[in-house]
Design a binder for these strands. Structure first.
Lengths: 282, 282
DNA sequence: GACGGTTTTTGATCTACATCACATTGGAAT
DNA sequence: ATTCCAATGTGATGTAGATCAAAAACCGTC
């Protein structure tokens, strides 16, 4: 591979070179040695927690189940407990990857922004909504590249934050941990593939139906009338998760309400009256 | 989380439950213990290769660079050298994950199919085109789930095949290997995120331009007239990679040729006459 | 309660792209 | 060459969903 080729095409063989540009921009803001990500989170409180409490908390993570005692001890020492309020950005796209976060409690959205020209024109695409027990920022941390996605808390969250380098060191010492975290990454690739498939193969109403079912699965509870839930996503965000415009989402929902598949009259709460019917629309 | 909820919604909290259905179908065909994937590849030749040769070959993989001698020894013992012809399906979506493949030589496409009703209606979406030095089927192998994607050789390929379980064992013994492979997975998630971003943020002509640049970066060479290459993808496949219809792709290309950005008169070869201009269309 | 601002809904229009139908090309087989 | 078949190109048409514009609902504040 000749450098001439890359120069002529203006591309780079290393995928995501695009981010490097971003990163350079951010280095200008944050300086060469970026401060630990959470040190500059506006809504964050870094809580001092006893070692034993941290240890117990970490051992509850399903993805870490079965790992050696020594690993948990080390991870507890390396991690800080972090509390952030709903709406706080945990990290932004293009920012240097400083830490990895284990979500103990709360929900967050992972998203990507279009570098859309002109202010007010930028669009977001939600890549996933994650809850208790997930790992955030792992991929970028392993690659040692800037964040490929943004993460924002949808509800108040409690997280364990671990510095990138410390996690990598831990992974190098505890093979089981690497394997578990690799599995977590594998699960994310599958979810992303699902997303791609959904986007290209299904129509907007179908995607809306699926999105509702997914949300309800995570956030709903069964009642006599159907499945009731208060979505953690605004309509705008639902549209971003579905990959359509806010207006189109609104119309889809109205349509489903009109057909008495949904009940939207409850203010912020949504009731799925006919789950089977909704599923059939997938 | 109540089972009642899952049952009412007809969903599953475990993402990708969909594949389990596929898998069950395939078990009916292949039986409970599926034969090693490559044993039933029609166009495959399993070549007996000396240990030392395998060892050297494996050590050339960039993603494995710097790992311990012992790991390479073990991997060489565990792996088989496989040759498959252009067009051979390495594995299919939904098939039980039997092995992981290290691509030594050749190019392959990773894709997902729509479960489109009715024959002749099924569509494919190409998730990526990979070349020398890539790992195929790793994510599904780690998850221990059926393949979430299909892989088909675009050119004749030489691969090292390793049984799923053997690779997992190796990873558990050599932490460095887990870490390296986790990095490979991280890179794939980034590429998938790029794909999602591309699909939702950019128009068809923009995606075509990017696809051409990406292909040319991998397969092109610089000449006086511009960058020349023989795409490993057919027009149909280019369309699938871009997420548009074959007709739309054709029109896009014609348009670019008309504007003298491309030269398509060379039969199967494409010449990018004005790389900068093409890049500007991104 | 009335008020201002944000978020959501509804309506009307416009367009990019899919789809269908058919023409053309190009390459393998003979 | 000639024939055949698959792959590709082009033209005409329809439509899903974006976009623009404006009304309506919601929400906190006074």
């Amino acid at each position: 591979m000749l450098p001439a080729l890359l120069q002529t095409l203006g591309t780079s063989r290393i995928k995501g070179a695009w981010f490097t540009r971003y990163w350079k921009g951010l280095r200008a803001v944050y300086g060469e040695n970026a401060p630990p990500s959470w040190a500059r989170l506006p809504g964050a409180r870094c809580r001092a927690v006893e070692h034993l409490t941290k240890l117990e908390g970490l051992q509850e993570f399903e993805i870490l189940a079965g790992l050696e005692e020594g690993f948990f001890q080390a991870l507890a020492i390396a991690s800080e407990v972090l509390e952030i309020g709903a709406g706080t950005a945990l990290y932004r796209e293009g920012e240097p990857s400083g830490a990895v976060y284990f979500m103990r409690e709360g929900r967050a959205k992972l998203y990507r922004s279009s570098s859309g020209q002109g202010p007010g024109k930028a669009r977001d695409q939600i890549l996933g909504v994650v809850g208790d027990g997930s790992v955030l920022g792992l991929a970028s941390a392993l690659e040692g590249k800037p964040q490929s996605q943004g993460a924002t808390a949808l509800t108040d969250c409690v997280l364990y934050a671990v510095f990138r380098d410390e996690l990598v060191n831990l992974m190098a010492s505890y093979p089981g941990a690497s394997l578990s975290l690799a599995r977590a990454l594998a699960a994310r690739t599958r979810e992303l593939e699902d997303l791609v498939g959904d986007l290209v193969f299904h129509s907007a109403p179908q995607r809306v139906a699926r999105m509702l079912l997914d949300l309800a699965t995570e956030e709903g509870r069964v009642t006599k009338r159907g499945v009731v839930f208060q979505p953690s996503l605004s309509r705008q965000e639902m549209a971003e998760a579905t990959g359509i415009s806010r207006e189109a989402l609104s119309r889809s929902l109205s349509r489903l309400a009109q057909e008495e598949i949904l009940d939207l009259t409850g203010g912020k709460t949504i009731t799925i009256l006919k789950p089977a019917e909704l599923r059939a629309r997938t």
